[in-house]
Nucleic acid binder design. Structure first.
Length: 591
RNA sequence: UGGGGUGUAGCCAAGUGGUAAGGCACAAGGUUUUGAUCCUUGCAUGCGUUGGUUCGAAUCCAGCCACCCCAGCCA
């Protein structure tokens, strides 16, 4: 995978940037909130956001929504967006994921503010703050095992009961917590808990665990620590340290907001300010506020990280970057452009309603972007040989064709025309259905960019399979209409001798079911689309594809948008991935 | 049956008391040497539901219904 820096955008996308700048982003409740806060001067007029992934997997399209939201908001309101790895659970995390996440964000075209942050950067201040909570009588070391703690927690409808260690004296808590850090205890033997309310109707407030013991190496801090802070404890303080103003997260964290606020208020504004990036500044220091929005869900896909991981590990797909995966790595390999994904996220919107976006919206976005950017080229997917009887053997004529029908700036290409060519088998029918306007016996069709031809003879093998067509050429139709008749059909073609043999992978949606993760489906494997990948080895492309290999993608005329698979394209043979088909009113009308 | 959320067209989504934006999808026309693109037109007498307040309600109030999330020392 080659990396693409956000700074070095190709010049061909300048018009997109203009479009982007001219387009007013759709209004949503978070923008309203920020505008209100800006108007009231709540955060000293600042907007500071952050994207806080846990490095425990690859980023997918759902993350893209959060990335676009956080980075765009910061940009639009003159603020900054940090990248912060929420790396508090080393058992599940790794450097591999850190690297891929950074790469994906850059590829999307976003630039985080300053250095990459890690929650693990704050382990020491986090520890000191825990000591403060202990001193304030707001946290205690608990000896309950995870199992016992669960029993003490109560249920959704019944209150929990206090830990026997809730009354442990402050001095003892301090010593015990220090001993936890020193590694004197085994995993799970003790934990540090906030002292809130075991009878709270909000289970997150029933003395949540702040620190747990894990004798395990961390990808950033090595073996320096054997106690690790939990998400709830870490996230709010990390936000406070980084002076985040608007801490955006998904809906399921709504129940955690009271805890987020409890921790920050318990520590106090001044104490947090002392640890924050703003400690030496006169900028007004204000506590961050959490706001929740609905996750992005798309039908015919799975969003769960667990399931994505499972697909990779059990070989359902060929890796995190399999072009059928809705990971950013997979979509990139499939041929999705950053602009199309960003536009999609904007189009789908931000709200608190848990909707499911139709995948056709995503498909629309990539078609729209590629229609503008992709040079046109011809490639025959299922070759059928055609001999043009009135063209001389061995003669090669270079026909000049536009690279793009509407954008002359994209230039021209030479397409060799010869006596023997290939057309697609689907473009010929002996017994055509009503409305068919391609080639039929005795009928005429336009060869795209070339002549009108007539099919005079159909050659078959012993099994009755059509193996070759003999056609005549109307030589007075190059660049002009035929005299006295109309020829409606236009088909694509490639020279037999000059064409380039290539492989083409036709990708389709991975699942047949609208929601592969629905409760009614016991195993997502039961609704896999058996033809999500069809590999064609016998395709023939016009030779110019070899010189244009740097293009974002190609349109194979009348077929769809394709990109070169960088991983599998050997020098002697190119492999193309189909990003998306063209819209096809003929195909859909005939189903 | 505790707590937290959400209900506007097939889907996403604006709307914040003055008479239902926009996009996707779909349908019908037009242009076209891609059955593509592009253009034009159509697509909610009604905003989960029942009442109430008001000259006026998707917007305010009350009740009801449906769906989602929470009992990790995961995030």
């Amino acid at each position: 995978m080659t990396s693409s820096e956000p700074k070095t955008k190709s010049s061909s996308v300048t018009s997109d940037d203009t479009d982007r700048n001219n387009r007013k982003p759709p209004s949503n409740f978070i923008r309203h909130l920020i505008e209100q806060d800006l108007a009231s001067g709540k955060h000293g007029g600042r907007v500071q956001t952050r994207f806080p992934p846990e490095p425990n997997g690859y980023l997918h399209i759902g993350h893209a929504k959060s990335i676009c939201l956080n980075f765009s908001l910061a940009e639009d309101y003159g603020g900054h967006c940090n990248l912060r790895f929420d790396d508090t659970n080393p058992a599940k995390e790794s450097q591999e994921f850190v690297d891929s996440i950074k790469e994906n964000i850059s590829w999307l075209g976003f630039q985080w503010h300053g250095e990459v942050r890690y929650a693990s950067n704050y382990f020491e201040p986090l520890y000191q703050f825990a000591l403060e909570l202990i001193e304030a009588g707001k946290a205690y070391v608990c000896s309950l095992s995870p199992h016992q703690a669960r029993e003490h927690r109560g249920t959704l409808t019944e209150p929990g009961i206090d830990s026997p260690d809730r009354d442990r004296p402050v001095a003892e808590n301090r010593v015990m917590f220090e001993r936890m850090r020193q590694g004197e205890f085994a995993d799970g033997e003790y934990s540090l808990r906030a002292m809130i309310d075991m009878a709270s109707p909000n289970i997150n407030m029933r003395d949540p665990v702040l620190y747990r013991i894990r004798h395990i190496e961390h990808h950033q801090t090595g073996n320096k620590w054997c106690i690790y802070p939990t998400y709830d404890y870490t996230h709010c303080i990390s936000d406070a340290i980084e002076n985040i103003t608007h801490s955006l997260c998904t809906l399921e964290f709504g129940d955690h907001r009271p805890l987020y606020n409890w921790i920050l208020q318990s520590l106090g504004l001044e104490s947090l300010r002392q640890a924050s990036d703003l400690v030496d500044s006169d900028i007004q220091y204000v506590l961050p506020e959490q706001t929740e929005f609905a996750k992005l869900r798309i039908n015919y896909t799975m969003g769960g990280k667990r399931n994505l991981k499972d697909m990779v590990e059990t070989g359902v797909v060929q890796g995190w970057d399999d072009p059928r995966m809705n990971t950013l790595a997979g979509m990139r390999r499939r041929g999705y452009t950053p602009e199309s994904i960003r536009n999609f996220c904007e189009m789908a919107g931000v709200a608190r309603n848990e909707g499911v976006v139709d995948i056709s919206m995503l498909e629309h976005c990539i078609r729209e972007d590629l229609d503008r950017k992709a040079p046109r080229v011809m490639c025959v997917l299922n070759p059928l040989k055609v001999t043009l009887a009135d063209i001389e053997k061995g003669q090669v004529t270079q026909l000049e064709m536009a690279a793009h029908p509407k954008n002359e700036a994209m230039g021209k290409r030479s397409v060799p025309f010869t006596r023997e060519i290939y057309i697609d088998r689907n473009d010929f029918e002996e017994v055509p259905p009503p409305g068919f306007k391609r080639l039929i016996p005795g009928g005429e069709v336009r060869l795209r960019g070339a002549y009108v031809v007539r099919c005079n003879e159909v050659l078959k093998d012993e099994q009755g399979k059509v193996v070759e067509l003999i056609c005549s050429v109307d030589k007075d139709t190059l660049g002009k209409r035929p005299e006295g008749r109309k020829v409606k059909g236009v088909i694509h073609w490639v020279s037999v001798s000059e064409g380039l043999p290539v492989s083409v992978r036709l990708y389709d949606r991975l699942f047949d079911a609208e929601n592969p993760e629905a409760k009614s489906i016991t195993d997502y494997r039961d609704c896999l689309n058996p033809s999500s990948l069809v590999e064609l080895q016998q395709c023939i492309a016009e030779p110019s594809v070899a010189n244009t290999a740097t293009a974002v993608g190609f349109q194979f005329e009348r077929e769809g948008y394709f990109c070169i698979d960088q991983a599998d394209s050997m020098n002697e043979r190119l492999v193309f991935n189909r990003t998306i088909t063209l819209r096809d009113s003929w195909g859909t009308a005939n189903k």
